[in-house]
Design a protein around this nucleic acid. Structure first.
Lengths: 368, 368
DNA sequence: GTGAAAGCGCTAACAA
DNA sequence: TTGTTAGCGCTTTCAC
């Protein structure tokens, strides 16, 4: 990813708003002031300026004052690119999200930022838009900028492209989904156990025919949650009709169609009396389906994976299996800085618990 | 700043990627291969490698092949810091948000990213956590990294600290709130008109005593929205009792207390029959207050500034004056790249319209 | 306390 | 088509 010179005449950044005309006048065009400029203005050596800028000891009060004045008067700001080039470390980490616009990731991103900040590092983030190619492009662009480490929420299932980077010392932690075909640190919610618990909750409230609507297989979290669903059913000795399982993605129309089918008891099966939703997008769609006036007479129980804002204000309030995105982000960032601080043991996997929050929709008894 | 590598024993040479045993403490990007290494391995000159890496013309198929092989076998990746240092441009822009964890900013951030991407630039973002000092710290850190431009959602009301940066050519665009004490491009929602319209909507539905609960004065958006409230009331010839106006912040307890007071008709005034909320956080709190069982008998109308997810699923569904955060982000980013492409006219202010979305809560008639 | 000189890894400008 | 030579602005080293 680069702004490549396919554009031959891209003007360099305007030095100052109206310097455009001055540029060919032979005058030394006003780039930004450098340490050298500051040194000249203050009448000191270059290294002294460097000392002042970096707060190093060994500069007399008097000299420091002169340098500070020169800095302010010239509007100097250290060029970190040069610094990075020399020092080899950037004090920045990268975060590759699946989707910057998904509220689920906001607290995660924020938590990573807080940890980074506590370690004096800047966070650079971008989103893959769930596109594997874009994930790779972004991750490698961050590596080219020499971030010290990388937190990745995978959109792809093959991360071998990162092997040279990891070998070169870029600490890398995956969150929410495991890395593909390489070994690396990993932070996950306990998707299996969370789903199992959610479905067991419905069973405990008397349901025997429970539908599962979730994301596509191939997505690790979706597989785990489906596995949890099946485990809960099996533990209770309940059969699972295949018509009750719809792991077909989060597209609203698809979800709606599957839900309607299950509630009608399609393909010869009896209608389900409860639904378990594989993630928050599915849940919201299901809430809409179930809120339809004609459904009101025969209420259907619902438990959703993932919490979401206002779930408690809906009627009925929605029972969920909540992940803690901030906690995931914090754990990942801490794992990362542990590596950056020198830990070089085997990659580890951290599993974070989920929490069942009973609010009403999951406690509706079967109405069949 | 960061973990300083005051590491006296500098591990051997580049090349061996897996020399994990060599590092004693303080990890490092121990010897990544450079173009020079690639050149040596491929038996070509440095500049030839540079040409291949940057896709420049003028390299024979054969040479290119050899270079590519060397690149892969060494795991080379261009060091962008060096490139930036030389070229003076980073192809990256910074975004300073108020709060990375606020869902309102997610689409905004995403929109900025998309525009940046279309221009071949990377987006670096961070949040000020609504702390003016932190905003400055972040913005200046981004400048030190030589971002080409900056999009800022201000937390502070004095941006003179940016003057040297702007003079040095860092394009800067403010969003959502105006910059303080400097001139710069600005993208705003039409807060005044939006609030005026929202309150007028309540008046049109028969309300005469309408309360306003919003953010603190001093915050530009809050001032504008309050001004819109007063304008709508004035246009309708309605008086505004000062007990109906609570511009005291978004703290839930405070909002709840103010709402309860207004609904009870405190300080000798009659109770309000409708509430206008100054932003989404206030709105959510008010929804909770109004949803309390004891309020159900005497329903109160509500119009909120800012849309939020699931507003349509609440009962009653919430009428809002919606901003379009993605649109704000897109507009800001486009303004920014316009500057980066050389525009040097006067700073401009772009005002984006809001949309009234009637869903039910705002159409409840007065019950007084 | 202070400063001169030597790079960090890359690209621009110019040879060859 | 290819290579050589200067730096970009900073930190490091070491001499003063």
């Amino acid at each position: 990813m680069a702004a490549d010179a396919s554009d031959p005449a891209r003007p360099p950044l305007p030095g100052s708003p109206r310097a455009a005309g001055t540029r060919r006048g032979g005058r030394r065009h006003a780039g930004r002031p450098t340490m050298k400029d500051v040194a000249a203005q203050a009448g000191v050596g270059l290294k002294t300026v460097s000392r002042v800028v970096n707060g190093e000891a060994g500069v007399s009060q008097d000299t420091e004052q002169r340098v500070q004045e020169a800095i302010t008067s010239l509007g100097f700001r250290r060029n970190d690119s040069a610094r990075v080039l020399r020092k080899g470390t950037t004090a920045s980490i990268g975060l590759v999200l699946e989707d910057l616009a998904d509220p689920f990731y906001s607290p995660l991103s924020r938590a990573v930022e807080e940890v980074a900040r506590a370690h004096g590092a800047l966070l650079i983030n971008g989103s893959s838009a769930e596109d594997p190619e874009r994930e790779q492009e972004l991750a490698l662009a961050l590596c080219a900028r020499r971030v010290d480490g990388l937190v990745i929420i995978p959109a792809s299932d093959d991360h071998r492209y990162l092997a040279p980077e990891i070998a070169a010392g870029v600490a890398t932690v995956f969150v929410d989904r495991p890395p593909g075909r390489i070994a690396a640190d990993l932070v996950l919610s306990d998707n299996f156990e969370g789903a199992r618990e959610g479905v067991a909750h419905l069973i405990a409230h008397g349901h025997r025919r429970i539908g599962y609507i979730g994301d596509r297989p191939g997505i690790h979290t979706a597989e785990e949650r489906l596995r949890g669903y099946r485990a809960a059913m099996a533990e209770a000795g309940l059969p699972v009709a295949e018509a009750w399982v719809a792991p077909g993605g989060t597209d609203a129309d698809r979800v709606r169609a599957d839900a309607v089918r299950m509630l009608a008891g399609g393909r010869g099966g009896e209608p389900v009396t409860a639904l378990f939703s594989g993630n928050n997008r599915v849940t919201v769609t299901l809430v809409r389906v179930l809120a339809a006036p004609e459904r009101r007479e025969r209420p259907v129980a619902l438990v959703g994976f993932d919490d979401f804002e206002l779930a408690d204000l809906l009627s009925p309030p929605v029972t969920v299996v909540a992940q803690d995105p901030a906690d995931l982000g914090r754990s990942a960032a801490e794992l990362l800085f542990r590596r950056l601080d020198g830990a070089d043991d085997e990659p580890r996997t951290v599993s974070r618990p989920t929490t069942l929050i009973a609010r009403g929709s999951g406690e509706i008894p079967p109405s069949g």
